[in-house]
């Protein structure tokens, strides 16, 4: 069973390494959206690897179930959390990095009702927005 222990150790260290990669990405990348790429993917993957390490190390049914529960929960909720943060960031008008090549979301949000259009707003929507303001 020493082989399984080695495998578990490798999983644990790899998971911790990916979490360090997430932290480095959060420090290094230039704007919120690219930072979210690193924080969402690498951190949930790192946690998953560490939990797989504990499963392989202890080999008990209760730990298996509990760790599996946490893995599934994290992988289901991480995208939802990043979706919420991304939406809030775009509505707060956080600037995108100057190297951004295309922004098809520009002008699609109605800043009063927070509705999101599926294609370009009609030409007179500017006037409607003005009327609402007055």
């Amino acid at each position: 069973m020493i082989i399984l222990e080695w495998i578990a150790s490798i999983f644990l260290v790899t998971g911790a390494f990916f979490m360090l990669v997430a932290a480095l990405g959060v420090i290094k990348l230039p704007d919120v959206f690219t930072r979210m790429h690193a924080a969402t993917k690498a951190s949930s993957f790192g946690t998953g690897l560490m939990l797989v390490g504990t499963i392989a190390y202890f080999r008990e049914p209760f730990i298996f179930l509990e760790s599996l529960l946490v893995i599934v929960f994290i992988f289901l909720t991480a995208p939802v959390a990043s979706h919420m943060i991304g939406r809030a960031a775009y509505l707060l008008k956080v600037p995108l990095w100057q190297g951004t090549v295309v922004d098809q979301l520009h002008g699609k949000y109605n800043l009063h009702t927070h509705e999101l259009l599926s294609d370009s707003p009609p030409a007179d929507s500017q006037n409607i927005a003005k009327d609402l303001k007055d």
């Binding site: 995208p79 979706h83 991304g86 999101l116």
Partner: peptide
């Protein structure tokens, strides 16, 4: 390489 931001109303 991709991250979903929002779904239109």
């Amino acid at each position: 390489g991709t991250l979903s931001l929002d779904v239109s109303t």
